[in-house]
Design a protein around this nucleic acid. Structure first.
Lengths: 216, 216
DNA sequence: GGGCGATGTATCGCCCCGATACATCGCACG
DNA sequence: CGTGCGATGTATCGGGGCGATACATCGCCC
């Protein structure tokens, strides 16, 4: 999942690790906490090993003679390769089970602006199905196990059920909008239209009923 | 986190792995998918190594002579030890940062019926604080980065923000109830009754040892 | 009698996290 | 002028948790 996210950001512009982490945090802030360096650096090395990215580093400028003491280690700027772009496209297009869990779905969704509509629909529907299953499980427990569970546990289930129902409704709206050819309001940014961009965004917003309230 | 959950279930009754997994799934169904065996069995061995649990296995009944072919492997029933109960109490009482993330909070909350009120309040408030921080982060992004992010990413942030706001409200209610000495009960939706009812235990099941009285 | 789904235990490789360490840069404060 | 501190920056390590996989038995229906 991280692989997709990193490739996606690096496609927009080259960056070093620290920067990448920050961008990741704002792009994926809604679905996960900031990524750990203990994850990031090994992943970058893995991607580099696979040839998807390369170092385009600003090594120390003029100095081959700099003595080891205080060896200024330059920032390492990573850049996506042609193969990396192919890999990104491949990851973007796939819609398997991993794509439907919390983390996978979130990352894919964050790059929907660069995903073709058919894939968007498949992912949205797969996710909906998965959340519906979870919801049914919770309903069953709440219907059958009321005697066996204590009040706090039940309250937890109710809260979880509520979240599931809400997400299903959200997904329904998004799916309906996709089918009717509307993108969420605002303009897609990122890399130049190398694929067919979503239809002109001027129309109606999704999530219009639920939507974003004014901030008091 | 798993450690707490396993100890908690085993405190109610001894079980073998498969059963444990199912119980875990219903108890924690609201916060996480079913636990993997690749997690469960190593964890059980770890707990056993630490002396918190022991095997109370139904080994094959009368046979020391059973030939290796089709060596009937009995189910392994795990039982909590006295040290395990101490450990459980210790874990229950702690309220650190790990207790406030999604997973940690969920597990602790699921055992609130056996947690004393002061700890419940500390955990609830710690969690609220954490979710509020997350919420502020999302608000910032939505307020500042509108130009930089595409419509789908923004929609994701909005959905996340909505979830945060909802959870904060939920936590507020729970905190208010704790302060006024009520356990969670059916969805009130009405005006909050001001008369002090004795904290009603969650389940109405008579003679059940399911709900331990709290220890102040 | 034969298959098939539920029950049951177990391992392996991999992803990811938090803690930790170390080094530089810019700037405010005395 | 220096000194310390918070942000920037790269990196490793131990360990928890996951999905895939393997293997064996049990009960039941056809």
């Amino acid at each position: 999942m991280l692989e997709l996210a990193i490739l996606g950001l690096l496609q927009e512009s080259s960056m070093h690790g620290y920067e990448l982490r920050k961008e990741l945090a704002t792009k994926l802030g809604a679905i996960r906490a900031a990524i750990s360096y203990g994850t990031l650096y090994p992943t970058l090395r893995r991607l580099q090993g696979a040839g998807w990215i390369t170092e385009a580093g600003e090594a120390a400028v003029g100095a081959e003679e700099v003595p080891p003491l205080t060896s200024r280690r330059g920032r390492i700027v990573y850049k996506i390769t042609a193969e990396g772009k192919e890999r990104f496209a491949e990851l973007l297009a796939q819609a398997g089970p991993e794509t439907y869990d919390d983390a996978g779905f979130g990352v894919h969704f964050a790059f929907f602006a660069r995903t073709d509509r058919a894939t968007r629909l498949r992912i949205l529907e797969g996710r909906r199905r998965k959340v519906e299953e979870r919801r049914e499980g919770l309903r069953d427990v709440l219907a059958r196990a009321t005697e066996r569970l204590d009040a706090y546990t039940l309250e937890l289930q109710r809260h979880g059920l509520d979240a599931c129902e809400r997400e299903v409704r959200w997904l329904e709206e998004l799916i309906a909008n996709e089918r009717s050819g509307r993108a969420p309001e605002g303009r897609p940014t990122g890399s130049p239209p190398e694929e067919d961009s979503p239809p002109p965004p001027g129309s109606t917003r999704p999530g219009s009923t639920r939507n974003m309230p004014e901030r008091p």
